[in-house]
Amino acid sequence: MTSFLDPFIAFVSAHAWLAYLTLFLAALLEAVPVVGSVIPGSTIILALSALVPGGELKLPWVLLAAALGAVLGDGSAYWIGHRQQREILDTWPLMNYPRLVAQSESFFHRFGTWAVFFARFVPPIRAFVPVTAGALGMAPAKFYAVNIPAILAWAPAHVLPGVLAVSALHEYAGLHHHGHVGKHIWILTVVAVAIVVSVGLWFIRRRHGSGVAEAKPRG
């Protein structure tokens, strides 16, 4: 993964518009059922956010790109489920992931409306709960009333760790060039992702009684 993302991040850092587009697409695809369970959207967002302290990217635009991608991704998944109702959960490609679909349904039934909020922070069901909410008949107004605040919390939670960590590294080590900071980005990214995932899984295990990590598709 690092061998692919290192040159990719280096390239987009020189083309701000492409970096913002990548942030938007990473957040959007992360919300797509099935696709979102394999796309390293959080890693890409964290890695690109590390370019903010060096001035390659602007923090408000990074947050906006990530938030808009998440809103469009979650909203699209929700409306697909809302229009096709329960049958969408038994059609391809969701039918190939019965355990994740079942996990998402159970998560939704246990937490109700708040499942939409909590799922934003918990992979891999983050990509399945919006479509499940639509399929199970959650009203649009209720979905967006929870989904929008969740995304407004999720975007800073994914962007700011990279920004703050690299800013602290700049201040502590006196490094002012992106080339120097780049050596440390992946360590910081892995730590940040591990913290986000660990906190999410800990919360779900306490409230749900079973680890999300067990809900993986067969084969």
Rank of each mutant, 00 (worst) to 15 (best):
F121D: 04
I88V: 15
F117D: 03
G112I: 08
A135L: 10
I125H: 02
V101F: 09
I125Y: 09
F128N: 01
I125G: 04
W114R: 00
V101W: 11
F121N: 04
Y97E: 12
I151S: 06
A141H: 07
F107Q: 05
A127I: 00
P130V: 00
L136A: 14
I148H: 13
P130D: 06
G134E: 13
E105I: 15
M138Q: 14
K142Q: 13
H109Q: 14
A102P: 02
V129E: 07
V129W: 06
A145P: 04
P123A: 07
A102N: 05
I88F: 10
Y97R: 12
T113V: 11
F107Y: 12
K142P: 04
N147F: 09
A139K: 00
R110Y: 01
F117V: 06
I151L: 12
L136N: 12
P123I: 02
W114E: 03
F143G: 02
P149D: 15
R120W: 11
T113F: 14
F111A: 05
F108H: 05
W92Y: 14
Q103T: 04
V122H: 01
V146M: 12
R110V: 07
I148D: 12
F108W: 03
A135Y: 02
F143A: 04
Q103D: 01
V129A: 08
F143T: 04
I148G: 10
A145F: 12
M138N: 06
G112W: 15
F118I: 07
K142D: 07
F107M: 02
K142H: 12
I88A: 13
A127L: 05
L94T: 04
M95S: 14
L100W: 02
F111C: 03
P130S: 11
R120G: 06
P130K: 11
E105A: 03
A127H: 06
E105N: 05
R120K: 11
F121K: 01
